[in-house]
Simulated scan of single mutants.
Amino acid sequence: MAADMLAGRLHVADRRLRMETVPVPEPGRNQVRIRVKAAGVCLSDVHLIEGALTPLYLPGDVVTLGHEVAGVVDAVGDDADGWEPGQRVLLQAGERDRTGTVFTRGVDYDGGWAEFALARQDTVVPIPDDLPFEQACIIPDAVSTPWAAVTDTGRTRPGEAAGVWGVGGLGAHAVQLLRLVGAAPVIAVEPLAAARERALTLGADAALDPGDAAFRDAVLELTGGRGLDVAFDFAGVTPVREQALTVLARRGRLVLAGIADKPVTIASDSTFNYLQQSVLGHYGSEAEHVEQLVALARQGRLDLAASISDVLPLAEAEQAVARVQSKQGNPIRLILRP
């Protein structure tokens, strides 16, 4: 094996992404090394490069990016029992220590924008042979975050009316997942016409422009006059929250999956209280959510083929980041392939 590999390294001090040659890491105790076959480019990666996010637990100021990773087991460290070279796997997007602190892959320790990546053995998840690496790698985060929002935080039940604001990388999956759990109708809310069309192809029952003067009337008509049982903000902007609160049903829930770093304003506490509504914060997912999604994919219930907007060589990571920044082609996910 070559002693060196290519990696996309973020230098936190000057927020520069550099493609560098670094030593291939050796697995330590309880660790597995995987040969990376696919790694997703997430908006969080862009936020790290731009400075909107900063690693909390990174020792030093350089890290290999990439928290959405799939590949094959390449080498197994001591006490990493049950893993064999050649197994097809994805990696959880992070790991917890004994105190419960979450360390995020590609943020607090080296991630998968590289030819090889290390993972603690309990963060490695086997995947079926017929699940392409490009689809498998985005399950942790791009799919598991909206899945956890839909099933856990939002507690979405069959037959409930659901609205999804922002149908990009997370919201596009939320539309599919809401349909999977039986929400009806599923209403996508998105200013971009192309994204609205895409939402309809992914299973939305309706796709509305939030700027339409008849927006509220349209939601009420689609829901038989009651409004939304659960609304999801995947856009992370204040006007979304304000609009969603105007179309919530009695006991309706607004789930904040997007992060605006702004105050959340409830126009009237008397109406909010009388209707017994709630605003729920959401962040990320747990290990079991990833495992549930792999099980769904194994049974053919989850098809993520439409989510893979393009596949680029790892060496073109900087171009991939630029495309996500500019929203060129309105991608759901761009994938890097070493």
Rank of each mutant, 00 (worst) to 15 (best):
L10F: 06
A188V: 02
V324A: 08
E115R: 02
L200C: 13
R18M: 13
G163D: 05
Y274T: 15
V32K: 05
G182D: 10
R88Q: 02
Q31G: 10
P331W: 04
F232S: 08
T123P: 05
A213K: 13
E316K: 09
W113G: 08
R29L: 13
T104L: 15
R155Y: 07
A142E: 05
V143D: 09
A235N: 09
G8W: 11
L118E: 07
E160F: 10
G166A: 11
D78G: 12
L58I: 06
G252H: 04
A305K: 13
Y57P: 04
D78Q: 14
V12L: 15
E197S: 10
P27L: 01
R96W: 10
V125L: 12
G203I: 05
Y283T: 10
V324H: 08
G159Y: 00
K37E: 13
Q299K: 15
L296N: 08
I259H: 06
P85S: 01
K262F: 00
F215L: 07
A231F: 12
A38E: 12
L302D: 00
V294K: 02
D209A: 11
R323K: 15
A70C: 14
L56P: 10
N273L: 13
D269G: 14
R196N: 12
D209P: 02
T104P: 02
Y109R: 12
L256A: 00
F234P: 07
D108A: 11
T201E: 12
L65S: 04
L254V: 09
G300H: 10
D229G: 14
L302Y: 00
G159K: 07
G211L: 09
R333E: 03
V219D: 11
A93V: 03
P85T: 02
A161D: 10
H173T: 04
P85G: 00
P191Q: 11
I34H: 07
P140V: 02
V72F: 00
R241K: 01
D152C: 04
I308Y: 08
L222F: 07
H289Q: 14
Q276K: 14
R323H: 03
A249P: 07
D97T: 07
N330G: 13
A194V: 12
F232N: 08
A322Y: 07
E197F: 03
H173Q: 14
E84M: 14
I127P: 02
H289M: 09
L17P: 00
A260T: 00
D122W: 13
A231V: 13
A207H: 02
T156V: 15
R16N: 15
R323G: 08
V279R: 02
E95V: 14
S144F: 07
W147V: 03
D209R: 13
Y274C: 14
G203A: 05
V22T: 09
E190N: 01
H289R: 06
V73C: 12
A193Q: 15
L91F: 03
L10A: 10
I332D: 00
V240Q: 01
G211D: 03
W165P: 06
A204K: 04
R155E: 15
H11F: 14
E221S: 14
P132E: 03
G258W: 00
V62N: 15
R16Q: 15
S44L: 06
I187A: 12
R216M: 01
I34C: 05
A315W: 12
A148T: 13
